Simulated scan of single mutants.
Amino acid sequence: MTLRTGLIGLGMMGRHHARVMRGIEGTELVAVADAMGDAHGVAEELPLFETVDQLIDFGVDAVVCAVPTGMHEEVGLKLASAGVHTMVEKPIAHSVEAGERLATAFNERGLIGAVGHIERFNPALQELRRRIDAGQLGEVYQVATRRQGPFPSRIADVGVVKDLATHDIDLTAWLNRTKYAEINAKVVRITGREHEDMVVAVGQLENGVIVNHTVNWLSAVKERTTVVTGQNGVFIADTLTADLTFYENGEVRSTWQPVENFRGVTEGDVIRYAFPKQEPLKTEHEAFRDAILGKENTHVSMTEGLETLRVAEGMLEASSVK
């Protein structure tokens, strides 16, 4: 069976979806849509529609929705009503209430509703989760993330919390196989828009792990780092390069005073792991396909996406930003 797939939203992210969708085995990208046209030349030989209704009428089994966040609910509900499996870009919707309506619509119809939290599919984080599950780190104490970079002019309808911090919320809960118990945050607005540009958050998961997130789009340096500290050492995952490094707790005693001053009284092994590195977007699409076919459920469900949005809104509430 070959799944007929469609794409709505041909902006910066949509063009990458189209590129990857053309190469997903067992699927065929048959049409695309965008009310604003095709600025990046994504359609090529495919039919180009203006509305989701036209895309549905053309006949599709599954659709990727890469329209602005504020349109997720409207487009998603139409796709659910038509019986079309859908993956919406993160966050699931502009508000928790809208996300609840979306998740309910897909769940009630027995459809696969997925959310594009792509960081879960980064090979460094997938390898990190495998090693945490295997007990290499022992008890996990803390997860700290840093997600910084220049301002993305393409983002207009949400702030840095819903656009970027949702990545860190999702991956942190996923790595630890649990939910957030509490979250506190401080935000600032620098660019003059109504939305926040920087957030620093601290919280705790239900299993007791403490977390902190530093996220902004004000930095001249782009950084995507996840640091997990535990009983046996520290993992550092760089999702820009998909590298994973393990700093083992020290066991070798140092008697060289100058070195001890810089590195501590003991030293442990430092290992950068080698493992297969497939493009995360391709892995994400394969997970969406497999969920539709009933093979595996490694996609990010709308229920999970909704929980991530709840935590994001909790950050904003804690910082008194509505």
Rank of each mutant, 00 (worst) to 15 (best):
residue 159 G to S: 11
residue 19 R to P: 00
residue 101 R to M: 13
residue 170 D to I: 05
residue 291 A to S: 14
residue 289 R to D: 07
residue 182 E to G: 12
residue 105 A to C: 13
residue 308 T to M: 08
residue 48 L to P: 07
residue 177 R to W: 03
residue 79 L to Y: 07
residue 238 D to E: 02
residue 47 P to G: 05
residue 216 N to F: 02
residue 248 E to N: 03
residue 309 L to D: 07
residue 219 S to Q: 10
residue 196 E to N: 05
residue 253 R to C: 03
residue 304 E to A: 07
residue 158 V to H: 10
residue 150 P to D: 09
residue 294 G to V: 05
residue 236 I to Y: 01
residue 254 S to K: 09
residue 172 T to L: 06
residue 239 T to S: 14
residue 218 L to S: 09
residue 286 E to F: 01
residue 191 T to K: 14
residue 296 E to C: 03
residue 259 V to H: 12
residue 84 V to T: 10
residue 237 A to E: 07
residue 76 G to Q: 04
residue 276 P to S: 11
residue 84 V to L: 13
residue 239 T to I: 05
residue 266 T to N: 07
residue 164 L to G: 00
residue 251 E to R: 00
residue 319 S to R: 10
residue 291 A to Q: 13
residue 179 K to T: 12
residue 27 T to N: 00
residue 241 T to A: 08
residue 96 V to A: 05
residue 292 I to R: 07
residue 312 A to F: 14
residue 259 V to A: 10
residue 142 Q to L: 00
residue 143 V to L: 02
residue 144 A to P: 01
residue 311 V to K: 05
residue 112 I to W: 04
residue 297 N to I: 07
residue 114 A to V: 12
residue 188 V to W: 03
residue 87 M to V: 00
residue 234 V to K: 15
residue 288 F to L: 07
residue 2 T to P: 04
residue 322 K to Y: 13
residue 263 R to F: 12
residue 186 K to D: 09
residue 167 H to A: 13
residue 63 V to T: 04
residue 135 G to H: 10
residue 105 A to T: 14
residue 129 R to T: 09
residue 168 D to Q: 13
residue 209 V to R: 10
residue 186 K to L: 14
residue 292 I to M: 12
residue 264 G to A: 10
residue 280 P to S: 10
residue 147 R to F: 04
residue 124 A to Q: 11
residue 210 I to A: 12
residue 222 K to W: 08
residue 39 A to F: 05
residue 73 E to C: 05
residue 149 G to L: 10
residue 270 V to T: 15
residue 317 E to R: 14
residue 298 T to W: 06
residue 38 D to K: 00
residue 232 N to M: 09
residue 95 S to K: 04
residue 184 N to W: 13
residue 145 T to M: 06
residue 90 K to F: 13
residue 278 Q to V: 14
residue 255 T to E: 15
residue 307 E to P: 08
residue 223 E to R: 01
residue 84 V to E: 11
residue 46 L to Q: 02
residue 31 A to P: 02
residue 248 E to Q: 08
residue 221 V to C: 09
residue 70 G to Q: 10
residue 228 V to K: 04
